[in-house]
């Protein structure tokens, strides 16, 4: 069966420390002014004494049905054989159609290459060597689980099958491959 790489972000375990953000920046040489990944700390939600924050991972959702790929006129935004939504720098003309069309607003123009950039699950570096993406391996609370959801024995499959989870903006039909385990503390609008 083909691989279906997914990422699960557990909002209960996350403490918003940005270790993932920093690890991503150094692994992928992301220029200072832009970011492939951040964990937004939103809130506070709830009412005193039940106040809490939401940790919202913002990075490419690796949509199964990716709007960025559909709109790209040249095919520079494409789905790789492993299912990972990628950018072919050579074919790109920089029309920004994909940046505008991405519902999650996670594509940005890399000031060095002048083409769109975003999370690709470290596919050319760590994943190619059989390692976990940088953010996953560095997370101190193990809030991130990554793997092949089509592999019934994988950890990520077990997490998805045993914990409540949600995806963002499912109504748009993008079928994101970033899943989130909602905070147990209630009061949050997903």
């Amino acid at each position: 069966m083909t691989k279906r790489y997914v990422l699960v972000h557990d909002e209960n375990k996350c403490i918003g420390c940005q270790a993932c953000n920093v690890a991503c920046r150094s692994e992928n040489n992301v220029p200072e002014s832009v970011t492939r990944l951040q964990v937004r700390i939103e809130g506070p939600y709830g009412n005193f004494p039940h106040l809490h924050f939401k940790y919202n991972r913002v990075s490419c959702e690796q949509c199964e049905n990716a709007p960025c790929v559909k709109v790209c006129p040249t095919g520079a935004a494409y789905v790789n054989d492993d299912g990972i939504v990628s950018v072919n720098e050579n074919k790109c003309v920089g029309c920004l159609y994909c940046v505008a069309a991405c519902p999650y607003k996670v594509r940005f123009i890399n000031p060095e290459t002048r083409v769109p950039d975003k999370c690709d699950f470290c596919k050319d570096s760590r994943l190619a060597r059989g390692e976990q993406p940088a953010c996953v391996s560095v997370c101190p609370t193990q809030a991130l689980t990554f793997g092949d959801a089509n592999d019934m024995t994988s950890e990520v499959r077990r997490v998805l099958d045993t914990k409540p989870n949600y995806q963002q903006k499912v109504n748009l039909g993008t079928e994101p491959r970033v899943y989130r385990i909602p905070s147990r503390r209630g009061g949050i609008k997903a």
Partner: peptide
């Protein structure tokens, strides 16, 4: 963002 490479849009059609 890459005006000098706009010809790619004439060569590749998605």
């Amino acid at each position: 963002t890459k005006p000098f490479e706009f010809y790619h849009i004439l060569l590749n059609y998605n």
